[in-house]
């Protein structure tokens, strides 16, 4: 299935990336070639194979319900792009 610029643009929108119009054909081409590469997997019979999410057959450890973190707002907001009164600021959001 050939990849077309429209596919790339809709994926880019999902990923919140903006693709320059000038670069679109190039991006589409490389994106398409990567998809061709990964399409090799179609040939492999995986009937009944359980997907593997993690290398080891281990289980989740649990944390005791304790408050271990104190207020670190100042340190954590030091490199924040825009803050006011402790809030992070973003352009007006519509609900």
């Amino acid at each position: 299935m050939p990849t077309i610029p429209a596919d790339v643009l809709s994926v880019a929108q999902l990923a919140r990336l903006r693709i320059d119009e000038a670069a679109l054909d190039d991006v589409t081409d490389r994106f398409g070639r990567t998809l061709d590469l990964v399409a090799q997997l179609e040939q492999i019979d995986t009937e009944g194979v359980i997907p593997m999410s993690n290398p080891h057959d281990m289980q989740q450890r649990l944390r005791a319900d304790e408050v271990t973190e104190s207020n670190q707002r100042e340190a954590l907001q030091k490199t924040a792009p825009a803050v006011a009164d402790g809030f992070f600021l973003v352009p007006k959001v519509l609900d």
Partner: peptide, 9 residues
């Protein structure tokens, strides 16, 4: 999902 299956193989 397919890739995760091949990962197991």
């Amino acid at each position: 999902k397919k890739a995760q299956q091949v990962r197991r193989l």
